[in-house]
Amino acid sequence: MIHGEVSEFGIILLFLIGGIFFVAFGLLTARLIRPKRPNIEKLTTYESGEDPLGTAWSQFNTRFYIIALVFILFEVELVFLFPWATVYADQELMELTGGKWGMIALVEMVAFVIILALGLVYLWVKGFLNWERPMPTGKQYYSPIPKIAYSKFIKRRK
């Protein structure tokens, strides 16, 4: 495929610009043909038909906070793994080092990954990967009807 003067990253830029144009063009077309008759009811925030109480921009559980941190750690690890994966069995470097290159690269990366994997194990053991489930509170309800009554009833229905 001949790209003329467009460089490889130019093609990516072309996709970027083309995508933006497509979205903009679509929205423009829709704007031209769609009706616009807003009223207060339409413009309220949807909350299953109720009037919304307060705003959604409030404090909420930062349960995903730990996950975000772990994600960053692993993502950084991946950033280092990508260039490693492209060169570690490189033929030229193998020949230059008499076949030692692959082994050295592998051992180094294994050491690096094990340190990070230990981090994951630590998180696991500490229980940060467990989802905190809210325990139901409130009194246990004791029914005056004994449980055996239910099973008798079910048997009779059969």
Partner: peptide, 22 residues
């Protein structure tokens, strides 16, 4: 879908709401 009215809720952050589909 092309002909449907486009509703941006009054309480929304208009800029973010418009940029997101892009």
């Amino acid at each position: 879908l092309l002909q449907k009215e486009d509703i941006i809720p009054a309480a929304a952050d208009r800029f973010m709401f418009r940029v997101a589909p892009f």
